[in-house]
Design a binder for these strands. Structure first.
Length: 121
RNA sequence: AAUGCAAGCCGUCUUAUCGUCCUGACGGUAACGUCAGGAAGGAAAGUCCGGGCAACAAAGAGUGCCGUACUUCCUAACAGGAAGGUCCUGACUGUAAAAGUCAGGAACAGACAGUGCCACAGAAAAUAAACUACCCCGCUGCGCUAGUCGCAGAGAGGAAAAGGUGAAAAGGUGAGGUAAGAGCUCACCGGGUUGAAAGUGAUUUCAGGCGCAUGGUAAACCUUACGGGUUGAAAGGCCAAAUAGGUCAUAUCCACGAAAGUGAUCAGCUACUCGCUGAUAGUUUACUGAUAUGAUUGGGUAGGCUGAUGGAUGCUGACGGCAACGUCAGUACUAGAUAAAUGAUAAGACUGGUUGUAAAGCAGCCAGACAGAACCCGGCUUAUAGGCUUGCAUUAUUU
């Protein structure tokens, strides 16, 4: 480990798996995110990052938020301790563009929450 | 030099650490790794026009629907662009009037094909109309200067000249003419019309004749001319797991038969499977099944590839053209993602603003826009901190 990469394989795509995640996954809110998780049999954790176009009408703003979340996940993803692999969706629910440091802090909290959920199962 | 306007151009940079996508080379069975190269815009935006491309449709014509609307040209095409014309507005020059130059604007075909509408005000808003005032005529009354008189009244006519209303009042100004008036007549202007000349054309100029009642609105319906097949890359083309199905082979079980063996073929019903019916075949009344494994196969789901990035491309030069643009030659370029890459963090530089200081300098603080490719092009429209260049105007200074 120790590689802070984020390759194509880790990006969640495909209509079917996304539908499955949204219908069967379990979710929790932790401002500014809504997080949805689901166990899968893939070889890596796969992540979907979404910023609603309803709150951020300009593509530039959405891209900026997505990039910050992606960077935060990339740097902190080794904090995930589960053996089983997950599908994770991050949905950005805040109405303003938060600075990178805040997004980093909050995302670490969400990872801790996901780990806690694993231990209970 | 400053400010304003117009046109054109640019629209932050560097380093470090960690990362993303594409291409190539090398290593590796592969996963992947190493190295090298490349990776957003002037609007990528709005999706408002036009085209390429693709599929489907399509005898021809008419009607309907939608769009366009001064002319000529440019272009693949356009509602875009260039040049020009007409009208309107403003400024300047200038004159007795005229006229010219510059800048801006125009939904700039048709209102003697038809239908409709024209609020309020006003007498009247469209085959004209008489409220006030004006004029003539006869009648009645009154007056005295006793008339071809004056005043008043009601009546019958004339008249679009004056007043007032309105966005608009039926060509304008002047003269003649008349009871008063009227294109009733004349001159000039305006209008439409005929001819000639100039121009590819819109149109212009000149000449003749026309007295010339019949408004506005087509961003009301409408008429005329020209153009338009429909749907968009989620189009279209190709490959193709898994699962279910077809066919073949083998094995096992089962059924029939005394045994050998057989467990098929064809047609009809049904969208298909199953099933049913019939015929034929296996010496034959019967039976004409099931499961597993392997091979193969049609369609095709998930998914993938393609479409899809080199083009009506940019730049430079020559030639043609007033110009838009075209032709030729040279040269340069190369994003290709797909739940959607092109980044994150830190430091510094640069530019601008502001505060401190008498000022330069320096220091502190703040800011660096609009905005993210999605098949590709040509336009239009809208957003945009700051900077640069050129031209014009104004002001100030120096020579």
């Amino acid at each position: 480990m120790g590689k802070l990469t984020f390759k194509k394989e880790e990006k969640l795509s495909g209509e079917k798996s996304i539908q499955e995640l949204f219908t069967k996954g379990s979710s929790f809110y932790l401002s500014p995110f809504k997080v949805i998780t689901l166990y899968s049999n893939s070889s890596v954790n796969r992540v979907l990052i979404s910023v609603p176009a309803r709150t951020f009408k300009k593509a530039v703003d959405r891209n900026k938020i997505k990039r910050r979340i992606r960077e935060a996940y990339r740097i902190n993803k080794e904090k995930l301790t589960s053996n089983k692999k997950l599908l994770i969706a991050y949905i950005y629910t805040a109405k303003v563009i938060l600075p990178s440091t805040v997004i980093h802090e909050k995302l670490i909290l969400t990872l801790a929450q996901i780990n806690k959920g694993n231990e209970e199962n």
